[in-house]
């Protein structure tokens, strides 16, 4: 029940589908950045987004920082012999001309040490670091705990 009120307030405050915001630095653009509402700050949260490299040179995502978490990290969910693990990803390749997704069950940002609960309908900033494109500030939409993909208009 306690999750219902903020959710309703959000429904009243904003239409469900809004245009996807795109954040660009050089040849790299990031869109559909989203996370899920958290229960308190004890559990790690996730971060999903899409990165498009419109240039002719390969790039790579090397890491992220955010005021929302003291220990943010890139992870990749892997399944070996049926056993799921999520090792640290030292870098996520973003080849020239391609779009790479951080999405459920694959690459993700892992936000450990949340500094405040993530509240549905709110946003938080992150700074991504790319090998070639450098730093890129992105705003992340906090969706419901039941979200499975980005909620903006051109989300696939």
């Amino acid at each position: 029940m306690k999750n219902l009120l903020p959710a309703m307030a959000f429904l009243l405050a904003a239409p469900m589908a809004q245009a996807c915001e795109t954040f660009t630095s050089g040849d790299i653009s990031v869109q559909q950045a989203w996370s899920r509402a958290s229960i308190g700050t004890g559990r790690p949260a996730v971060l999903y987004l899409e990165i498009t490299n419109s240039g002719a040179m390969d790039d790579a995502l090397l890491g992220l920082t955010t005021p929302a978490a003291s220990m943010p990290m890139l992870h990749e969910t892997t399944v070996t012999d049926g056993v799921a693990a999520m090792p640290h990803a030292a870098s996520i390749p973003v080849p020239a001309g391609q779009t790479v997704a951080l999405s459920p069950g694959g690459f993700h940002g892992m936000l450990m040490g949340l500094t405040a609960p993530l509240v549905e309908g709110e946003k938080f900033p992150i700074t991504l670091t790319f090998e070639k494109a450098g730093a890129l500030d992105v705003s992340v939409d906090i969706l419901s705990m039941r979200a499975q993909e980005a909620a903006c208009d051109d989300a696939k």
Binding site: P44, M71, M73, V79, G82, V83, A84, M112
Partner: peptide
């Protein structure tokens, strides 16, 4: 984990059983 906490690697499949208790199948994570 790096924050001094821990996570748990675990079998991620979903196991299905018939009403009589017999194992039926697994739905794999991917």
């Amino acid at each position: 984990t790096v924050d001094g906490d821990y996570t748990i690697n675990h079998t991620a499949g979903v196991f299905l059983f018939y009403a009589n208790g017999r194992f039926a199948s697994i739905i794999d994570f991917h």
